[in-house]
Design a protein around this nucleic acid. Structure first.
Length: 586
DNA sequence: CTAGGGTTAG
């Protein structure tokens, strides 16, 4: 075994170190030996090896500071952050590098609070932080979303007289300010920088994208060329994301060209951005072309392509590609599975959905928050409420989206009471319903005829932060309409701030159901006023007049149609009280 | 011996 070989080496080494130190010489040489072995442990990711060296160093009474630094680093590189920390805490004296190693490791491991805690301890123990410390620290504040402390750290760094032109510090600062939404400060850092480089500028681009200012991100490209800074594959990849968000495919194609010209098109990440850009712009064939020319697609690339098919309504292709992916022995991740499940939802394919559920369980991802929600949604849309419930109950800590999926699953399948029950329980658990939640809850009331419950929910919605959207008004009009509260529904439409034909159409069908001819005529007018150019809305109007048996109105409507050259519409048959009549003048 | 920007999802 490898570890046996290593142990023998170490025993041999121990002898040599103790004898040599006995003579009071060659300490440095011993350090070099240890360092050599540590490098080997790191290469093999052997925490055990590091532990043995750590132990022997202590046994041999050989507490060398440089070696301690290397040991902590070796623990970290083997992924044993806790053991590194134990050693860190035991050390009587600590080199600044060790502080920095620990802090950066915590940031890497997304344990930024601990990184900040160590920074505070540095201040308390009067240890002078350096540029390395701050470049990690800014990232920590950006993760934690604490602007105040990030700013304070920035000030402190300047106060300590550290190099503000350090490239690493600069990009970390830009990144921090940008990710905390302070694009103005990020800009200021960039403009104060004497030797701007590609990373600094890319950080700014990414910052703009993440705060939703995609066109500003694209403008940075011009700024770069005026400073003579060459974009690289990371820059291009980010710019493509901006193009995708803006659905600016001509710009995206131009960037694709630039990537090819510079020979940067083999980078997986820029290919993924490229693929995603084309898909989101509806250019699925271009996506497929990029995908097909990729030698060994990684999971992300498979997933992006599958997502592209789903986004473009090609659900069967998405499922077929998923099968290809499995055939190529590529393991789907949570992103892949939630996307494939969405394809099943759209196609209402419960058999395939169940098979994919098995994949999720096999990968241990069936309780992942994205996958879990997608599973609940899939079962709901496939009409398997029982399975939806089982999957939902299996989630350790259901989040808002999975609850929405469950509520929607109930509503969709006519379990109004259960939907409302979950809606109420969710609020008691302290969740704030979002727009989707209200839509599901209101449609549940509508399907189950729960008028009063729906009214209560709508009142809650009105006092919520975002307020009711058109969809919510439509649900409510539907609910009131089905309950025969036609006048109330009509006044609700008047009350809605947004004008939308959907509202009038919903009212119109309710009026027809309840035989309210005058109401139907007014609703048809509502549609007509918002959609006057549309021949179909004129037909609707003439039908509504016919329904109300106001023939002069029908004739008037038909005449206007003819006048507008809408021959087909004018000649269309008229629906009167469910019966169809020949058009005027035939 | 420690530090910077990027890919897919509800």
């Amino acid at each position: 075994m490898r570890s046996f070989v290593r142990k023998r080496h170490l025993n041999h080494l121990q002898v040599s170190v103790t004898t040599r130190t006995q003579y009071g010489s060659a300490v440095e040489e011993a350090t070099d030996y240890y360092a050599l072995l540590l490098r080997r442990c790191v290469a093999e990711k052997s925490t055990t090896g590091v532990r043995i060296i750590h132990h022997q160093m202590k046994e041999s009474g050989f507490p060398h500071l440089t070696l301690s630094v290397k040991l902590v680093d070796a623990y970290l590189k083997c992924g044993s952050i806790n053991e590194a920390r134990d050693m860190f805490d035991e050390m009587p004296r600590r080199h600044i590098v060790t502080w920095n190693s620990m802090i950066s490791a915590y940031v890497r491991e997304k344990k930024s609070e601990e990184a900040v805690r160590l920074y505070r301890r540095m201040i308390m123990e009067s240890v002078a932080a350096d540029e390395f410390t701050f470049s990690s620290l800014f990232k920590a504040f950006s993760h934690l979303g604490i602007l105040r402390d990030g700013r304070a750290a920035h000030a402190r760094m300047v106060m300590l007289g550290l190099d503000v032109q350090n490239a690493f510090v600069g990009s970390a600062l830009v990144d921090m300010y940008a990710k905390l939404g302070r694009l103005h400060d990020a800009r200021a850092v960039v403009s104060r920088f004497d030797k701007k480089d590609v990373v600094l500028m890319t950080a700014l681009i990414v910052g703009f994208i993440q705060s939703g200012q995609d066109s500003k991100a694209l403008e940075v490209l011009g700024e770069m060329s005026s400073h003579g800074i060459e974009p690289n594959e990371v820059t291009f990849s980010s710019l493509l994301i901006a193009c995708r968000n803006l659905k600016h495919f001509s710009q995206g194609k131009a960037i694709h060209g630039a990537i090819i010209r510079r020979g940067l098109d083999s980078a997986k990440e820029s290919r993924n951005s490229l693929l995603s850009m084309y898909s989101k712009c509806g250019l699925i064939n271009d996506s497929v072309r990029v995908f097909r020319t990729t030698v060994r697609p990684n999971v992300v690339m498979w997933t992006t392509m599958i997502t592209g098919f789903v986004d473009n309504g090609l659900h069967e292709s998405a499922l077929a590609l998923f099968r290809d992916m499995l055939r190529c022995n590529s393991s789907p991740n949570a992103f892949t599975l939630s996307m494939v499940l969405r394809a099943c939802s759209s196609l209402a394919l419960s058999r395939q959905g169940r098979q994919i559920h098995a994949h999720c369980s096999k990968a241990g991802l069936d309780t992942n928050q994205y996958v879990g929600a997608a599973l609940v949604d899939m079962y709901g849309k496939c009409g398997c409420v029982g399975m939806a419930r089982l999957t939902f109950n299996a989630l350790a800590s259901p989040d808002l989206v999975s609850m929405n999926s469950m509520i929607n699953g109930y509503a969709y399948n006519g379990f109004g009471r259960e939907a409302i029950e979950l809606f109420n329980r969710m609020r008691n658990l302290g969740f704030t319903p979002n727009g989707a939640t209200f839509t599901s809850a209101l449609s549940a009331c509508s399907n189950a005829g729960l008028l009063e419950e729906g009214r209560r929910i709508f009142t809650t919605l009105e006092s919520s932060e975002s307020g009711p959207s058109v969809t919510h008004y439509a649900c409510m009009v539907d609910l009131l309409g089905r309950a025969g509260r036609l006048e109330e529904a009509e006044s609700l439409i008047a009350q809605a701030k947004q004008r939308d034909v959907v509202l009038w159409r919903t009212l119109l069908s309710a009026c027809k159901v309840h035989g309210d001819a005058e109401g139907a005529r007014r609703a048809a007018h509502g549609v007509f006023e918002l959609d006057a150019g549309d021949g179909a809305s004129r037909v609707l109007l003439s039908n509504a007049y016919a329904f109300a048996r106001r023939w002069e109105g029908v004739i008037e409507a038909k005449r206007t149609m003819r006048g507008l050259g809408l021959k087909e519409a004018a000649m269309s048959w008229v629906e009167v009280g469910g019966e169809v009549h020949a058009p005027e003048g035939t």
